[in-house]
Design a protein around this nucleic acid. Structure first.
Length: 797
RNA sequence: GGGCGAGUGGCGGAAUGGUAUACGCACAACACUUAAAAUGUUGCGAGCUUUGCUCAUGAGGGUUCGACUCCCUCCUCGCCCACCA
């Protein structure tokens, strides 16, 4: 019979569904648990993106392998269903987000099944379902009650097109992550989660994680710890704290620059400068984030008429404002040291501010000297090295109560409120008598709106629903108003891995016993683009829940792997607008899911990804056809050919090791080598049924349908995934004979077949009498002989 | 500007101190066929004076008996962050 993937794939997908193959038993006691998690998907488009297919296929191979080696594997999936894309789609089409989301989830489920990916479908979750977001709201309450959720007026990123605020992480390069519009700064009253309280622990606990180094580096960079000194300057009767990493340059300070938004600016600006200063502030307010952070543009600033006192030498220094100073970092103020900071140097040249050298080693007429050196022009600290000076000056400040050693982080608190419809409502009620009241009568259900458009003023569409807004205060019963804001979707996804274990539980967010047993996640697989968003937020929320004793672990994901990106044939990113998107369905129809799965993993190393090539997929199909057509020796009492058996054992070892390390591409090529070998008519290479069956088992995680069918054809009654992963025989992996490589001066001159355990003496003897080697030795005794057992011998002459 | 990574045949890629180019695609020749497809066999880095030799892993240098692999300098590309004081 010919290989007909469509037919057998349908058959086995049905079989897995009916027999709940690979679905884990949460209460199983004999086997060790293994929580194999993939990042859940956003059900926005109409097709599962190939990136998801890639991600989930790799994780599925790994999960099926883990099951076969004897673990009780939990492999759940769900939908991250709240958020802007569904809402924007609703505004455009009038289709309610709940409806389009449902359609997309149904479609996604079908697609994942058609890829032969096994998920525990009975544990599926949907973050936009009230039974789920009830507990997202509960989570808000946990943070709120512990002082980790607060409301504050702050300059925030505002996307004029999406008409909503964005978290710092969602507004990179001054552009909206979703729509690409230029983000502007607005002062708004918003809800924040105090992730900054956890900055140090988030850094410290990186040690505990088996994660890709670059992901940890990205998080470190994002948290941005820097050690320095806070120093107080007096301006009239006011005090201003400035952060610096270079307190050794304090005697070179010739100005103080404040952010235009700094609260003291209005207070200390003198009347003759007021007009100019107000003018400057209003211009910089109008600038977009992109303009303000454009490095190419010259820095600007204005003198505000006030003077500050340098506490070390009591010198009077002018105070300026400049919009390159970030309001939210280091107190929004900078001490200006043009001799030893490049940016300050340029600014000083432009505005003719004094440049005073205090660290020797450079030429301050030519440019700023930014390295460490010996202090000059620095009073009693003259002659010290920068490093010593930093310590001594900081100590001096601490003694005089004028400053202290300080650690600053770039990480800012997580802005979680959104003035949009499609999200989990923030469970807060405003009462005239009681003020801000946490609503613990959950869920606070989203009303069924027809008009989802946000207002131009940035008010949430939820404000339109009077039934939603007008409520009674839970404390005193008098009329009150509900908050109309919803939460950032990243709040929903920061705890979803706890919910899978009890997706419909009504009494609490998660089943504590099951969470104690199953968490933390053993293997997490998903995109690297989440390094500073989801992966950081989930770690933060986990630590909060740990501190409040809801869970017993403080890191959610022990081991993390990323999949690379599958690119279009020309190496560019796939996008709908370019029309170069690869849709798995087309290939599943043509070649079958098994071929698709194996090919996508064969393209390149999993973590690298690579370009999709339409032509190469045929190679995998040919390989599977060969597997399909192979006939082993029917009686299992007969032994297989020795060479074939040896290679089989080697292949088992190689495939096992490679799957463990997510190196699917090389696992596949070694299985191809094996099949090529047993097909080669020039060698006797028959396998008996048992050995062939073992090969099918190691092949099974990659191509589950065809292997199930062939396994059944061999006369087996149970699924191949009920089988134990084959063990390899160490003796058979090692060959009796090897090709010993003979080198002269490091160059290969011959290869001879010898016993694998040949000694150096014997090998030397053979080499010296070898006719091909003799001419290279030039009748000389080798100066040195390097012998690598089982591999090579190198004669140095 | 800072951080991380990569550069290997016509193409995707393998090899992390020990046989460079595994595996796959494409291509060519042959077999089968009326023919084509499919399949199979063989070949396939470059050059040369071709039983073999020389050169070749972005460029140049170094360490080593031996370097795609380690070190230094430079070039190119990708990703992340970026006026962070």
């Amino acid at each position: 019979m010919d290989y007909n993937p469509q037919k057998i794939e349908e058959k086995w997908q049905k079989y897995w569904k009916e027999n709940k193959t690979n679905f884990c038993n949460l209460d199983e006691k004999k086997k060790d648990k293994f929580y194999n998690l993939v990042m859940f998907y956003y059900p926005s488009g109409d097709k599962i993106h190939i990136g998801h297919g890639y991600n989930y296929t790799g994780a599925d191979v790994f999960g099926r392998y883990k099951k076969m080696v004897g673990f009780n594997v939990l492999q759940p999936i769900g939908a991250d269903a709240f958020g802007l894309p569904a809402e924007n789609y609703a505004i455009k089409t009038g289709v309610h987000p709940a409806q389009s989301i449902k359609q997309n989830i149904d479609f996604g489920r079908k697609q994942l099944k058609s890829l032969g990916i096994i998920f525990d479908w009975d544990k599926e979750i949907n973050t936009s379902d009230p039974e789920y977001y009830k507990w997202t709201q509960w989570l808000f309450g946990v943070l709120y009650k512990n002082g980790l959720a607060y409301r504050a007026e702050a300059p925030v990123n505002w996307c004029p097109s999406c008409k909503t605020v964005l978290a710092n992480e969602q507004a990179t390069e001054g552009k909206c992550e979703r729509c690409g519009s230029e983000v502007i700064q607005k002062n708004l009253n918003q809800w924040f989660f105090k992730i900054t309280d956890y900055a140090e622990r988030l850094l410290e606990d990186h040690k505990k994680l088996d994660w890709p180094e670059r992901t940890i580096a990205m998080q470190k960079n994002w948290i941005g710890k820097s050690e320095g000194t806070n120093i107080k300057f007096k301006i009239n009767n006011n005090e201003i704290e400035v952060f610096t990493t270079r307190i050794d340059t304090i005697f070179g300070v010739t100005a103080l620059i404040l952010a235009p938004e700094h609260e003291l600016v209005q207070k200390i600006t003198t009347s003759e400068h007021k007009k100019e200063v107000d003018n400057y502030i209003s211009v910089s307010k109008k600038k977009s984030e992109l303009e303000r952070t454009d490095l190419e543009k010259e820095k600007t600033g204005v003198f505000i008429g006030a003077y500050a006192i340098n506490p070390l030498n009591n010198e009077k220094i002018p105070v300026w404002i400049g919009d390159y100073v970030i309001a939210t970092y280091g107190g929004g103020a900078v001490m200006f040291v043009p001799a030893h900071d490049e940016r300050d140097f340029e600014f000083a040249k432009k505005y003719k501010i004094e440049i005073r050298e205090v660290i020797s080693g450079g030429d301050i007429l030519k440019g700023a000297f930014t390295e460490y050196g010996k202090l000059v022009n620095s009073g009693e600290f003259n002659g010290l090295d920068s490093e010593q000076a930093i310590k001594r000056i900081t100590q001096w400040l601490e003694r005089n109560n004028l400053g202290k050693k300080t650690i600053n982080y770039r990480l800012r608190d997580w802005l979680i409120s959104r003035q949009r419809y499609w999200g989990a409502p923030i469970p807060i009620i405003y009462c005239d008598k009681c003020g801000e009241v946490l609503d613990e009568n959950l869920p606070v259900k989203l009303p069924d709106l027809k008009d989802f458009k946000p207002t131009n003023e940035g008010e949430s569409p939820l404000a339109r629903s009077k039934e939603f807004v007008n409520v009674k205060c839970p404390k005193c019963g008098s009329p009150a108003k509900r908050s109309t804001e919803t939460m950032d979707t990243f709040v929903c996804s920061s705890w979803y891995f706890l919910r899978y274990l009890s997706p419909h539980l009504d009494k609490s967010a998660f089943d504590k016993k099951l969470v104690d047993k199953w968490l933390p996640v053993d293997q997490y697989t998903g995109g690297a683009e989440h390094a500073c968003l989801h992966l950081l937020y989930a770690r933060f929320i986990t630590k909060v829940l740990f501190d409040q004793k809801f869970i017993k672990f403080d890191e959610p994901f022990t081991k993390l792997n990323h999949q690379g990106m599958i690119l279009a044939a020309d190496g560019s990113k796939m996008s709908k607008s370019k029309g170069n998107v690869v849709i798995p369905d087309d290939y599943i129809k043509k070649y079958g899911a098994d071929t698709f799965r194996m090919y996508v993993l064969f393209i390149a190393a999993f973590e690298d990804g690579g370009a999709w090539n339409d032509k190469s997929i045929i190679g995998v199909y040919r390989f599977l056809t060969k597997v399909w057509n192979y006939s082993p020796i029917p009686h299992s009492t007969k032994f297989s050919d020795n060479q074939a058996l040896s290679l089989l054992n080697k292949t088992i070892k190689k495939v096992s090791d490679d799957i463990k390390n997510f190196k699917f591409n090389t696992a596949i090529s070694s299985m191809m080598e094996f099949v090529n070998f047993i097909y080669n008519p020039s060698v006797v290479s028959m396998l008996n049924i048992d050995d062939w069956g073992n090969f099918l088992k190691i092949l099974a995680p990659f191509v589950p349908h065809i292997t199930e069918e062939l396994w059944e054809n061999l006369g087996n009654k149970k699924s191949i995934f009920e089988e134990k992963w084959p063990k390899y025989d160490e003796k058979l992996v090692k060959k009796d004979t090897i090709d010993l490589v003979i080198q002269v001066n490091g160059k290969v001159r011959d290869k001879i077949e010898v016993n694998a355990d040949i000694s150096e003496k014997e090998a030397t003897k053979l080499v010296l009498s070898n006719n091909k080697i003799k001419p290279w030795l030039n009748n000389q005794e080798p100066k040195r002989i390097i012998f690598v057992k089982g591999k090579l011998i190198n004669m140095v002459v």
